[in-house]
Write a protein that binds this DNA or RNA. Sequence first.
DNA 1: TCTGCCACAAAGATGCGACCTTTGAAACCC
DNA 2: GGGTTTCAAAGGTCGCATCTTTGTGGCAGA
Lengths: 230, 230
Amino acid sequence: MAVEVLHSGVLEAIGAEITGGVLPAGAVLTLEQIQQRFGVSRTVARETMRSLEQLGLLTSRRRVGLVVRPSSDWMVFDPRVIRWRLAGPGRLGQLRSLTELRAAVEPVAAAAAARHASPDEVDALLAVSARMRELGEAGRLEEFLAADVEFHALLLRAGRNEMFAALTGVVAEVLAGRTRHGLMPSRPRAEALDAHDAVAAAVRSRDPEAAERAMTVITTEIRAALGDLH
Amino acid sequence: MAVEVLHSGVLEAIGAEITGGVLPAGAVLTLEQIQQRFGVSRTVARETMRSLEQLGLLTSRRRVGLVVRPSSDWMVFDPRVIRWRLAGPGRLGQLRSLTELRAAVEPVAAAAAARHASPDEVDALLAVSARMRELGEAGRLEEFLAADVEFHALLLRAGRNEMFAALTGVVAEVLAGRTRHGLMPSRPRAEALDAHDAVAAAVRSRDPEAAERAMTVITTEIRAALGDLH
DNA sequence: TCTGCCACAAAGATGCGACCTTTGAAACCC
DNA sequence: GGGTTTCAAAGGTCGCATCTTTGTGGCAGA
């Protein structure tokens, strides 16, 4: 990340504008405009355009320009798109739909983890859930968030399914988003800590059903917390 | 697809080689090689490289070249990556992981559809499930597949959750993949047809739990069919 | 001989400007 | 008025020049 190339800056700017609704579907850009606005060469403008095209944010048409596509065409699983949307208006809706996805996948992933996790992964899960309890009870929210992310990442990877593992980034964004938007109690609830312990314990005892149930407790609580914001 | 630009051809070729394992993780390409091998300009080689980079298939490092990344870094939700992998070796593993994802998401999506589907969508679901029965009993597999894809696409969209809707392409690929690989009986099983009807009926009567149960019947059957191939 | 610093070169990153190709749309003809 | 032709706008491709980063090998000192 350190040495981000030129192209990225332009991408970030336009990507945020499109996902944030500043540039609505149907709006038209041209390479020329991009070059002038950002003071970059055609090469860079073109590469940026290609990136945006791959994200489904726009399509390029000869003689017309770069046309912004409707949100239904966006690649909403892409981490960048998720980040932009969580940073813009409509972030609550985004958080809600992501949370529903989590609620669907994570229980099943927990069951898979109970079947396939390696001994090392089991140990790591237990260790992280213990750490979550310490940090949570000490009110160290920053570190608690990091541990929470690690817990879910471990679990998703332990299921030995690359599609689940690929959702690690999504879950991390959701967790971070919750914290950023004050949807977390100042001290994690004891039920949440217990549920994480229960998931880890179920994985250790190779009990898929128990793991699934315990994870469902977690996702249900999260959905409830989001629901309160209606 | 008609007017494919140059850049796409190169992308397809290299993308397929990487995802197919011809170019293993750690392999190194250079822009120069790409230019010569495909007879394209540096611009095209660069744009291709950017595309592959966004898909997580490789990273570019100065003084080194374009390094192929391990499969754990690939954006496995991207439709192109899915298509390439289903076309190459390891397609069965890919089909299996995608099916697990479906099994996790679709029941929840069915429940969401029961809550949020519009009257038009309900009608469409009922119509398509009826059509599936006709086509299935007539043994017209091609058309049956198309109707099947439409059914699941409708359902995913009706849940009013963009993340679910974004999985339409994944489901379509899985269904098509099953048919292509002879995992479908020559005549769809009556239980499957009944289950689709049951999902549609549950959505009509706004019964999320019933919709979820009925969809679980479908996904369970599919997983069983895949399991037989061990 | 081993260690560390430095210069060189390889390969990507960026920039430019010319020319090609497609295509929307206006001008024109029947 | 409708179909056809012409034109120009905007992306697509190209090749080359220059800049920047960084791996590597060589040289010098301990």
